[in-house]
Design a protein around this nucleic acid. Structure first.
Lengths: 205, 205, 205, 205
DNA sequence: TATGAATGAGTCTTCATTCAT
DNA sequence: GATGAATGAAGACTCATTCAT
């Protein structure tokens, strides 16, 4: 506990969390092992148990870490939002861009796989639930914010529903080996009637 | 099919697959271990490698097993479809009943968790892909069949989109700790405009 | 025992011995396993224990098999002996040709490795001793025969000594990764004074 | 070097290598197993994988260990060389004493068996090659040194040839169940003409 | 504060052999 | 006569965690 207080300790904690996060994205939960994390972080094996009470603890921190990165990335995308055409199709595109864009250099499929692995992991690892819940809420808020900034109507519940549809179609695409973005876009286009009220000036629903 | 009819070896294979499937549903992929499967099946450890070339092979068979059970269950539900009210709300309810109904005694949440774990596992374990793909296709077909039998219009692509939305909302509910059925129903209701053409007599889309 | 009496049984025994011999040459003693032999012979696993009392028994038969092939090969070489130049150098070459020639398509190094593995294996597996002893004696006799046929003097003890020198230099070459034939030839040339009396008409030693 | 001086870890490593070496000499390569080594060293099973990256690694270290012991033993013999008679017979005896003397309490036949097992093992286990090569070179150098110290002429190539002859005759004796020293001596006597120049004052070859 | 050392439990897998048919 | 089925024992190796320093 106090270990984390030192600047050096803080740096090491971060290095370990960061390494664990990388491994988590690359190889799933089973790839996050004490040894692997220590090696990736370039730190001694025992540091993993010194800075974290258990492997589950370290994993939890890694999940939180990725969640924060994802949200930060999403927010910066929202901020940088360029002017877009209006209309449900543009809305569909906007949502897909926000939700299925890759964070950085890592492969998109790998990133999305990891994302949904973390989602369902919450059921088996309840310790992750709060973290994930917060991440999901922040994600929804960021998407809502993006709609607002682009002069659209925000129905927060509807936004959640659309996000679910995107998530579902992305997972489906991952199973089928299809392109996740294309799949999500198709899904959104199918839901054009639902998108309409978001896009219309005079809210009517 | 009856125990007496199947030779002993086949019965043992089945016992192992069945045990592996149980463990998979109860504890996820990492719970499926040679020892655990053998113990659950009441068979010697070596029988797991005698009947299956590797643990991955056994896991693949377990995934296939669950997939077949799920589809069979879904089909029997479709067959037993009671007369329902018409209207988009009834359609929503129908879809949710079909997609988020529990198979048997096992907990619903556990069952759904396992289902989506198996979905995303395809990315890391490509050997599962074909099996899962087949299961998903059969699921979609069964749902389409249900719509047809209940005198509704079938737009197969739209059906897939709705299934994705249900899947996404179920996963979301699992993360949040909410009731998956309720969540799926809410989502469907949000998509009532999309459901409408399914329900209308004269196809219009 | 009686199993071997049937023609079919005899054929199968041979197939198993032959398969075991191949595996022995290719991968050493540890490569000879029930499963591997059965697979290589295209016969059921249990046939390996049906036709042979144990794996050691099968190995012994395989060693004997290779020994007989080696001797037969050597004898045919002796029979086919072309007219050669005289002189110690020619004698050296003759000996090396006979002792370090490869049997058939298999790699020479692999064959020689297996040969000396079988030699030293006798100490750990006394059951092989008689077989190997016979093979070695027949080898020495065949070499002596070759010398006689080519009009040279035969000192059986000296022949054995020369054979030992060749064997030693071949093993040495295998360790060093040098060409076994070249190494053996060099050794023989070093022993030219010893070869001289073999070659001279009037025995002088 | 003393137990007190070496840290505990080093002592354990040594105990394991030493145990592995013993097993290697007593039972050949297949006797060197994690379990057996740990039991022999009186250490927990996991220590074998803690100190050595793999069993092959441990075996390699054991082979190196024996090689160093053999060379050290040979060198001490060379140093302690008593005044000897001259003449080829004495040279033969000297070579055999150096090359076929037993190291310590262990049985001579067992020791020699292990030696040649290690020689030919290099072909199947290339990782051992460098180690063995070094051992063999050092052995040849030590023998050459012995000849020099006893006022004899050294023809390094000839020395190697004689060593090969000794090695070959020892292996042959092991197969036949004859006394290795006697066999080696006989072989050397057969090569008396070759030994002569080594023994002669004025080098003539 | 850190960490090298250590290990019991458990991982998947192979295999020689037995036995019922 | 022949073999599919079966399994206890052992194989190499991994890993989360503890502990002494």
């Amino acid at each position: 506990m106090t270990a984390a207080a030192t600047p050096k300790g803080e740096r090491r904690r971060y290095a370990l969390v960061s390494a664990a996060a990388e491994l988590l994205e690359e190889g799933g939960f089973e790839a996050v092992r004490h040894r692997a994390v220590a090696r990736r972080a370039g730190l001694p094996l025992a540091s993993t148990t010194y800075y974290f009470s258990s492997l589950d603890d370290l994993i939890a921190k890694a999940v939180e870490h990725i969640g924060m990165i994802e949200v930060a990335q999403l927010r910066s995308r929202v901020t940088a939002l360029s002017r877009r055409r209006r209309g449900p199709e543009a809305t569909a595109e906007l949502l897909v861009d926000l939700l299925v864009g890759d964070i950085d250099g890592v492969g998109l499929a790998e990133q999305l796989t990891s994302r949904y692995e973390r989602h369902i992991a919450c059921t088996r690892l309840p310790a992750l639930r709060d973290t994930m819940r917060r991440s999901l809420r922040q994600r929804a808020e960021a998407v809502a914010d993006a709609l607002e900034r682009s002069g659209r109507n925000v129905h927060i519940e509807l936004v959640c529903t659309l996000i679910c549809a995107v998530d579902g179609s992305v997972v489906s695409a991952l199973v089928e080996g299809r392109d996740p973005r294309a799949a999500a876009l198709t899904t959104m286009v199918d839901l054009v009637e639902v998108l309409a009220p978001i896009d219309e000036r005079p809210v009517r629903i």
